[in-house]
């Protein structure tokens, strides 16, 4: 499933034109992206939570050469599926 399929679903459900539906879907993901960019988490009841986490600097190794390298601190995004999402995924055999 891609964004185009999601646009199609919105189009069928809402009665907006395909063009409008595409713009609206884009807008939803843009809103989510700018929220996460600010470091703010998103909690979607029944679906899951998107949380930005800080990763500290750590030492790593280049697996090919064995050289020790420093892995810089960075921010990453994590997704934790809700209990509801996990159970519907497991319900179907």
């Amino acid at each position: 499933m891609t964004k185009a399929d999601l646009v199609e679903r919105v189009y069928l459900k809402t009665g907006f034109s395909k063009k409008e539906s595409a713009q609206i879907v884009e807008m939803v993901f843009d809103l989510m992206k700018s929220t996460l960019e600010k470091g703010e988490k998103i909690k979607l009841a029944g679906f899951g939570n998107f949380v930005v986490k800080n990763k500290a600097t750590r030492k790593g190794r280049n697996p090919q050469t064995g050289d020790e390298i420093e892995i810089c601190s960075r921010k990453i995004l994590t997704f934790k599926p809700s209990q509801v999402l996990k159970s519907v995924i497991n319900a179907q055999g």
């Binding site: 499933m1 999601l6 995924i89 319900a91 179907q92």
Partner: peptide, 16 residues
């Protein structure tokens, strides 16, 4: 309706 349609769509695809 839009937000629920999107989340339902993603969820249904994952269930399948």
């Amino acid at each position: 309706l839009v937000v629920n349609t999107l989340l339902d769509g993603i969820r249904n695809a994952l269930v399948e």
